[in-house]
Simulated scan of single mutants.
Amino acid sequence: MDFLLITGMSGAGKSLALNHFEDRGYFCVDNLPPALISKFAKLCLQSDLNKIALVSDIRGREFFNELFQELAKIEKMNLNYNILFLEASDDVLIRRYKESRRRHPLDEEGRVLDSIERERKLLEELRGRATKIIDTGELKIDELKAELNQLFFSGQKKDLLHLSLISFGFKYGIPRDADLVMDVRFLPNPYYVDSLKEKTGNQIEVQDYVLKWPVTNKFYHKFFDLIDFLLPEYEKEGKSHLSIAIGCTGGKHRSVTTVNKLKEFLAEKDFKISIEHRDLDK
């Protein structure tokens, strides 16, 4: 079992790190009270879970009275674990607290700096036991993800980017969760051909009609080339899911055809792909 304890300075990015492990398939728990760690580990051993990440930190209050005892208990279970410790300089942490307008967990109507210094002293022993230490002070979110990948997932096959391709009709509204939206209402419309009006872009007759026009082929070449360029860049940025919505007027002909053809274009590439023709039956 891969059992990871994420801890460190408040404001250093523990929640961001936990979210990344969750995206990589870990079962994740935030702010687990230290006194429950061994009980939680025992439950994990009795389950089918094999990748666990949890955050336990100074928010647990009686932190050090319990944490090291709990770690000793899970060692007796012969459960190997790692400790990831995140930290940043005082100046960086002060700035982050000012930007977020949140109180430090140890703040008792005092100065933020006093709370940070107190926390850093309390965490000294735990930092010394850490398997990995990351200073997040100068790291952007994508750089933190890259650092985590290097430390914990180097040599592993990367998770595939999941693409959701959605056709829709503008008359019914744009999908709210779309990352990219393309409007194909400029393409010749099969709706105005009597023999095609009641058919959809899932049928070859409609696809042939949409594809026979030079403007369609020129557009597909440029659009598919853009998607081919963008997807690796989104992967570098750390995206695990991308929703591409393609719309026409009613969501039955041109958008459906375009989604189907885009799926064919991407089929041989290294992505997980799902499609949804949202307004096909409306």
Results as ranks from 00 to 15, higher is better:
E268H: 14
E108G: 05
I74N: 02
L45N: 09
L67P: 01
L123W: 02
I166E: 02
S164F: 03
F170W: 02
N19W: 09
G128S: 13
D30R: 07
R102G: 06
K269Y: 01
C248M: 03
L231K: 07
K222N: 06
I116G: 07
T258P: 01
R101M: 09
A53F: 06
A146V: 01
K42C: 10
K236A: 10
L36W: 11
G169S: 08
T257S: 03
E235W: 02
R59V: 03
H221I: 02
D107I: 00
L4E: 07
D142H: 06
L262S: 01
L280I: 14
L4W: 05
L122P: 03
I246V: 15
L123P: 00
F224L: 06
L230Q: 05
P175T: 12
L122F: 13
L187I: 00
P232R: 08
V210G: 09
K39I: 05
T257Q: 05
S164I: 08
D30Y: 13
E233G: 00
T7H: 10
P105N: 08
G201A: 04
S255R: 05
L163R: 03
I83G: 04
S38E: 13
E205Q: 10
E124R: 14
D135G: 06
R61A: 01
E138I: 06
E99N: 14
S56Y: 06
L163A: 03
L79W: 02
Q203C: 04
K51H: 04
K157C: 04
R120H: 08
R24W: 03
R118H: 05
N217A: 13
N19G: 15
G13W: 01
Y26H: 09
P33H: 10
E108K: 04
K39T: 08
K158T: 01
E237G: 00
K157E: 03
P33E: 06
G25Y: 12
H162T: 12
L231F: 06
L49H: 05
K51N: 06
K39R: 14
K73L: 15
L161A: 02
L230E: 01
D30P: 08
Y191C: 07
D107W: 01
N80C: 02
N19T: 15
Y209C: 05
D23A: 13
C44I: 12
Y81S: 05
G173H: 02
D48N: 14
D183A: 13
S56K: 03
W213G: 10
L266S: 01
S167A: 14
H20V: 09
T7I: 12
D159C: 15
D177N: 08
F224V: 04
L79D: 12
L242T: 02
E276V: 11
M77Y: 07
K171E: 12
D270I: 09
P33G: 07
